[in-house]
Amino acid sequence: MDTTRREALAVGIGAVAALTLAPVVPALASANAVDDAIAKFAGGKKPTAGKVAVSAPEIAENGNTVPIAIEVESPMTEQDHVTDVLILADGNPNPDVATFHFTPMSGMAAASTRIRLAKTQNVIAVAKMSDGSVFMDKKTIKVTIGGCGG
């Protein structure tokens, strides 16, 4: 694998950040926790943009209950369907929100729910297909009142 200068720098900075932050217990989810969760879910594959879409309000007045919906483009046949969709919120104390598991019988890979957001942050959806490919989408939601009882 070729490592570009940019990637090498990013890795270096990440390592330094990890070392500096390690002794402190982070109050909110760090970028690392989100990256780790995505990496674990994707099983080593790099998520690409497209296919999956997150829809949510741009401004959520009440962070206690923010409606979000995800939809993945897929024929949902035995050969080609969406298996799992991971939802993460990168500014919450714990980035995990929910994981949807689909089957061809779902008919379409779309679901919605209501979530808690502690502050203004990104909501990330990562979709895994039956062929192992991984797609990702991100949406920033502004939160007026936080929802994690802080």
Partner: peptide, 11 residues
């Protein structure tokens, strides 16, 4: 045919 793993961030 459909399952959801739920974390505390669900309302």
């Amino acid at each position: 045919f459909f399952e959801t793993d739920i974390d505390p961030a669900v309302s």
